[in-house]
Simulated scan of single mutants.
Amino acid sequence: MQGSSVRPEEIALFDDLAARWWDPAGPMRPLHMMNPPRAAWVLERVARHFPGPVRVLDAGCGAGLLSESLARAGHEVLGLDAGAEVIAAAEAHAAGQGLALSYRNATAEALLAEGRKFPVITALEVLEHVAGPGEFIATLAALLEPGGLLFVSTMDRSRKSFLVAKLGAEYLLRMLPVGTHTWRQFVTPAELGGHCRAAGLRLCDTAGISFAPLAGGFRISRDTSVNYIAMAQAG
């Protein structure tokens, strides 16, 4: 797939993991642990802004962990990913569930060229994998309806994130396959705010997503130095 957001090596990496994406004890285990709090954070804010179900674009959806969570909450979801294998895994898992959920193997730029618009867009754990974060945010902003909401989660380029998310998660604890992340591609909250402003978005809310080993998962926190999630709104 071509487009400014696509890094072919990243697409290949995650396509290779597609077959085990839905295994909660497999290589995507951290995403399975992270998905409940981040989905709840998104759904709570969507409910504050919209009186009922809305159309949601889940950009960079992978095999559909978040997409299914949003669809189960009653929203009409389009999961979008440039990886053909992850989209195939997403479609296979969703089959027969009766959800208002569809998938497409394409890029955000392709949807923009078609003139598509959405009231809500999510792009969770995607920004650190794209070719140009600023350009990607601008593309997503252009896909938003007026007053629409954009949700982004990513990783802060901090000393703590290097120790915890790169060395710890990949090399020491083996929670993720080695090479899943490149620390220099992480995006600081200040940089995200700048990308949002440049794209005409107002950054409204930010929270940390912190590992809570005693609870067996992740929780929303005030610590944004490793994983964090943010909401921005179009004018």
Rank of each mutant, 00 (worst) to 15 (best):
1 M>H: 15
2 Q>V: 05
4 S>Q: 15
12 A>G: 15
13 L>F: 14
14 F>N: 04
15 D>H: 08
16 D>R: 13
17 L>G: 08
18 A>R: 06
20 R>K: 14
20 R>Y: 13
21 W>M: 01
24 P>M: 07
24 P>R: 11
26 G>P: 08
28 M>K: 11
28 M>Q: 08
29 R>Y: 06
30 P>S: 14
43 L>N: 01
43 L>S: 01
47 A>P: 12
52 G>N: 02
58 D>Q: 06
60 G>M: 03
63 A>V: 03
63 A>N: 01
72 R>T: 02
76 E>N: 07
81 D>Q: 10
83 G>P: 03
83 G>D: 14
92 A>Y: 03
97 Q>W: 07
103 Y>V: 00
103 Y>P: 04
106 A>D: 02
107 T>F: 10
107 T>E: 10
108 A>N: 00
110 A>G: 01
114 E>M: 06
117 K>E: 02
117 K>V: 01
119 P>C: 03
122 T>D: 03
123 A>I: 02
126 V>K: 02
127 L>P: 09
127 L>R: 10
128 E>R: 03
129 H>F: 12
137 I>V: 08
141 A>S: 03
142 A>G: 11
150 L>S: 06
150 L>A: 13
150 L>V: 09
153 S>G: 01
154 T>D: 10
159 R>D: 09
160 K>D: 13
162 F>V: 01
165 A>C: 12
166 K>P: 04
184 R>A: 03
185 Q>S: 00
186 F>E: 09
186 F>M: 10
189 P>I: 07
191 E>G: 10
199 A>R: 15
207 A>N: 05
209 I>V: 11
209 I>F: 00
211 F>A: 03
212 A>T: 14
218 F>K: 11
219 R>F: 12
221 S>E: 09
225 S>I: 10
230 A>P: 06
230 A>K: 14
234 A>P: 05
